[in-house]
Design a protein around this nucleic acid. Structure first.
Lengths: 116, 116
DNA sequence: CAAGGACATTGATGGATGTCAATATAGATG
DNA sequence: CATCTATATTGACATCCATCAATGTCCTTG
């Protein structure tokens, strides 16, 4: 906090009362930043919205590759990042890999923001 | 969507019905990604939480520099990114620059997620 | 078993990003 | 005006990241 909530000493030193302990320790911040890193790419946001919009709740890579203007390896790479961030779930059935939203993941991530 | 919600044609082609139009056009996705890019750094998350925790709702750079383990120019740089993203507000009073949360910004950003 | 298809992995590359040291700016103060 | 202090800006540098081409893996099907 800075100390103008009651008064300043009237002399100098009006500022620079080091803010309360960071309120978010370095490790916690690092963990949360990982999720936002996963969201910090336009194509990954589009992937999430496409998976969410899919009627069955699932989409396979080939469904997702064409609408974006990206190669298949790039889409696989983005999907892996979203899975690692805990936002998407991956299930391999036969030749295809089906991706679906992890239930509640978007809401929990939203809570990371409002609960800062 | 992929067509297993009722049945597969039993033959081939079970997959690869290109997902509905991306549900999020490229430009919209790019804009949203900008906000999440601003959040995708541990030190910026800590800055946000410190500003929010400040009793007066404001913090100056010198309040924020010490708790993090960063130089002053680096903190100024991060703060600028948060301002550009529309998350923080900057007001210069005298020698000091006071940063405060833009009211509702975190909630609106959270809405970007749940409303994907 | 051979061939083909769906997806993942690897390696390379250009571009973005976080950090710092040095410097600039601008307000306060003597 | 000269100096000090708080903050911003610039330039450099190392690292990370998005993308692609090439290749590998695994399943299916003939």
């Amino acid at each position: 906090m800075n100390s103008l909530h009651i008064l300043e000493p009237a002399t100098d030193e009006a500022c620079c009362v080091p803010a309360s302990p960071p309120a978010l320790d370095a490790e916690d911040a690092r963990q949360r930043a990982l999720v936002f890193k996963a969201l910090a790419d336009p194509n990954r946001l589009r992937l999430l919205s496409m998976v969410k919009a899919g009627e069955s709740g699932e989409s396979c890579v080939c469904d997702l590759t064409e609408p974006l203007d990206l190669g298949q390896p790039t889409v696989s790479h983005h999907l892996k990042i979203l899975v690692d961030a805990g936002l998407l779930h991956r299930e391999k059935r036969g030749t295809w890999a089906y991706y679906s939203l992890v239930p509640g993941a978007l809401e929990r991530t939203a809570g990371l923001l409002t609960g800062l």
